[in-house]
Amino acid sequence: MTSNKSPTTEPASTRRPKSSSGAAGVREFAAEIGFARVAFNLLVVLLLGLLFWTVLDLPPQSAGLHAKVKAHMHVSGVASPITAVLLNFRGYDTLLEIVVLLLASIGCLILRDAPQSHPALAPGRPGKWVLDGMIHVLIPVMLLTAGYLLWAGDHAPGGAFQAGAVLAAAGFLLVLGNRMRFWRTPEWLLRLSLSFGMIVFVLVASVVTILTKNLLQYPENYAGILILLIEISVAGSIGCVLITLFAGHPPVTRTPAADQLWHSNDEPKE
């Protein structure tokens, strides 16, 4: 239905094709990239116009829930409002979010190939020294920052997710540097590490619910500690999850399919 446009002449960088000179231009342009595309483009422009209109129409001076959050900060057990919202006021969301991460990792584990089919990355690749050097220098620093971020989450922007991300970065470095044999990690350890965060969160939540007869309602004085406990475990498991997501599928070594990838154009027909 839409005639294929040769890949090289990508439309100009601006996504919104400006209406070129007069109807002739449009017709020629439409003929060139097919009617559906043109219609679609017009519709996207319309959508954009609508969104513009709504954004401009938004109430300018609304403080949102800032006041409410501030009012309950004292009870939330943490200083930083974001962490309070994340882990206390909307703790349920965060719980589900961690489950999302876990599921993503399960998805990847399902799709990984049998371990032996991927020979470990050949050691002694050129530029080994630079990589080793970086590893030696950066890994400790990364761990430190992760720890700080985790702690800072209590009163400043930071927290479990940021810490987990930094940990993951460290992990990536190790995997690329061939320091971590991802495939030899025993199965149970792999699964435990992934789901550790969720397990702790659920345990805490159930204990708390039993105590206060209300889902995820931390008792006043224990809130801070509990949140911290959750933060630590969650950060760890997020790190592991992200590493699994990356390491579960090593970069493609030279396989026939790979060769075909490099040579073929990367824009197959619609």
């Binding site: 239905m1 559906a36 219609a39 679609f40 519709l43 959508l47 619609e270």
Partner: peptide, 21 residues
Amino acid sequence: ESISRWTAVGTLFFLLAMILL
């Protein structure tokens, strides 16, 4: 077949959006 192509889906998607709007 025609409906199953992405562009068609996209167009329909936004067409319905505009109508509803």
